[in-house]
């Protein structure tokens, strides 16, 4: 790994004690919120309130620490995010409201991310540089190149581009495009390339997808820093993200971070969305915090209850909200709208 990556000097040997206790609690709160939100979405999908569900239960331990460290804002001076469909933890940690994701699940007209058009967890937030999430696997690694170029060509900024996706998807050319473009001596790009490795692409296990020992090993070819971490541990994740971001902000070069996580409800609603016995990052986090007296049982209970209430209230409100009218399909075809001669009948 490059010598320019600064490993943070530990104040304590125990990584949990190196992070502010309040920050750990905030992380825990959002992780729980994310989990309960996803479980609500699954319930809605199964109950016919909305359709397809896909999301990130099991990835909160990595996604929440990431969302907390984003330099949030609009424009080239801030971090850009090119995310995939398991990123609710990132959005919530950045301040997204649960109600908006519920709106997208229910396909209401009030869905601020897509006006009832896209699957749930397909965020698009211009004010926070969250670029439109697309259902196409891996294309985000191609669009990330663009904001990376914008930042590389902006003098004096320390902003970076964050892109995430799954393990199976790295077989697509877009992943390799991103590696190649980000590592050219002519214009290195400040991109944090993240692969969340849950060991599956839908039903196909890793052994039928890939031969790399670690996906992060692709970094070696480019003499670029790369690391594989346990994404089920929020503290390990926090420090790994911090280290990677510090390197990119300063050196203006890419970093490849692979986080191994669980996939707690399988791939999506199409595979049943039932709980799967894999390690649970929230349980792990709570145990570690309890062990160190960073939180007590009562506080934990309160976190779950208050978030459950928050989501219940939001859900009740969304149920009152209207669906888009059919005519809304014409909105946003072109930025300036459509003129009278645009064919709208759908045939003769």
């Amino acid at each position: 790994m490059s010598k320019k990556v600064h490993t943070l000097t530990p104040k304590s040997n125990d990584p949990y004690l190196r992070l502010d206790a309040q920050l750990l609690k905030r992380m825990h709160n959002i992780m729980v919120r994310g989990r309960l939100l996803e479980e609500r979405l699954i319930k809605m999908s199964k109950g016919g309130e909305g359709f397809f569900w896909i999301g990130g239960p099991g990835e909160e331990g990595f996604n929440v620490p990431l969302g907390f460290q984003v330099k949030k804002g609009e424009g080239v001076q801030f971090d850009y995010l090119h995310l995939h469909y398991r990123s609710s933890g990132i959005a919530l940690a950045m301040g997204a409201e649960v109600i908006d994701t519920i709106r997208q699940m229910r396909t209401t007209a009030t869905d601020p991310y897509s006006r009832g058009r896209n699957f749930v967890n397909h965020y698009a937030v211009p004010e926070w540089n969250i670029m439109p999430v697309s259902p196409t696997i891996e294309t985000q690694y191609s669009t990330a190149i663009g904001t990376g170029i914008a930042q590389a060509h902006t003098k004096g900024t320390d902003s970076l581009t964050i892109v995430n996706g799954g393990d199976a998807g790295t077989a697509e050319g877009d992943f390799h495009s991103c590696l190649v473009w980000a590592n050219r001596p002519a214009l290195p790009l400040p991109i944090l390339m993240i692969v969340v490795n849950n060991g599956f692409g839908i039903s196909t296990p890793a052994a039928e997808q890939h031969g790399e020992k670690n996906i992060a090993d692709w970094a070696k070819t480019f003499d670029m820093p790369g690391k594989t971490i346990n994404g089920n541990d929020p503290v390990e994740s926090y420090f790994a993200i911090q280290e990677a971001m510090a390197y990119i902000r300063k050196e203006r070069r890419p970093y490849l971070l692979e986080a191994k996580t669980s996939r707690l409800y399988g791939h999506s609603s199409s595979s049943g969305a039932n709980r799967i016995p894999e390690p649970d990052c929230i349980k792990i986090f709570e145990e570690q915090m309890l062990k160190r007296n960073l939180i007590d049982e009562k506080e934990i209970e309160e976190v779950w209850t208050s978030n459950r209430n928050l989501i219940d209230d939001a859900y009740q409100q969304v149920k009152q909200e209207p669906y888009p009218e059919g005519d809304d399909i014409w909105y946003g075809v072109f930025a300036e709208g459509l003129d009278d001669t645009y064919p709208k009948k759908g045939g003769s």
Partner: peptide, 23 residues
């Protein structure tokens, strides 16, 4: 004007990212 890698997908993807960034 500058030379890109020989990668049409990268070219279109990069253009889209740059468009979102207002470039």
């Amino acid at each position: 004007a500058w030379n890109s890698p020989l990668d049409e997908r990268g070219i279109v993807g990069a253009a889209l990212g740059l468009a979102w960034a207002g470039f």
